[in-house]
Amino acid sequence: MSFFGPGHGACPGCGLTIATRNVLEALEGKCFVSNSTGCLEIVSSQYERSAWGVPYIHSLFENAAAVAAGIELALKALKRTDEGKVVVFAGDGATADIGIGPLSGMLDRNHDVIYICLDNEAYQNTGNQQSGLTPTGSNTTTMPAGELMPGKTGRKKDMISIAVGHGIPYVATATVAFYADLRRKVKKAAEIEGAKYIQIHTPCVTGWGIDGKQTLESARLAFETALYPIIEYENGELTKVRKIKDRKPVEEYLRIQRRFRHLFKHPKGQEIIRILQKIADDNAAKFNLDV
């Protein structure tokens, strides 16, 4: 029994549909989905072409967390909580930018909701525009690499710390590169009462400029370079990290993606690569990632 698809309109090799399928299967389809506007919504919820096999709602771009809170309250009031868990699927823009207010409210009130941020690191539905979770140096259509600019100059927003800062019981990162780990985290989240935030690294073939055959490889390299640490917080404490054996230089991750290709020839490219390497090194030190 599939809870999502087939027949949806995602690009071949799409990372976020991999994540979505695994989340739904980890919950055995016993869930209510609130989905923000974005890639996932567009590829799966056209009228009379729904890919969903679980109760699903899409309202707006920035309110999926609040809508989920409302579902949770209704299930409580109507004594129907045994029907399933409430899950949000929202993109990185919907999470870290436009929807951060409603997300903060939902986390702060500690609703019994699993919030899944599908992090493909830009507004990919509309064609790779920069978001708060776009990494440094990434070439997007709203901050393209040019003579002067080397792509994004700011940092990737630390949503994990923001989520942890709300005092919620469970915060984790995951990646489509390790689906068993992803499923374990979702199952664990479902066992915990209160708000849960899981940010899943989901490669985007079109925005990142990779082939479907590189979807898993790029996700794995993000982890292996420590640019995307795979970590777990319970009740505010860092309880688990996925260790890296023979951590790789960030160039290995950057080189296979079109969005970073300019860094290898742009006058400011080396400086950006150094910044990214420092971010990776800092991650490795902060989370003690190296074996």
Partner: peptide, 28 residues
């Protein structure tokens, strides 16, 4: 009674909460 009363983070949030609740079958 069994009513769930919630303080939202904004009017935008309050209305959005009611969208979810109403779609799930609640009087809001």
């Amino acid at each position: 009674g069994d009513c769930e009363y919630v303080t939202a983070e904004s009017e935008f949030g309050a209305a959005s909460i009611l969208v979810g609740a109403s779609a799930a079958g609640a009087r809001t």
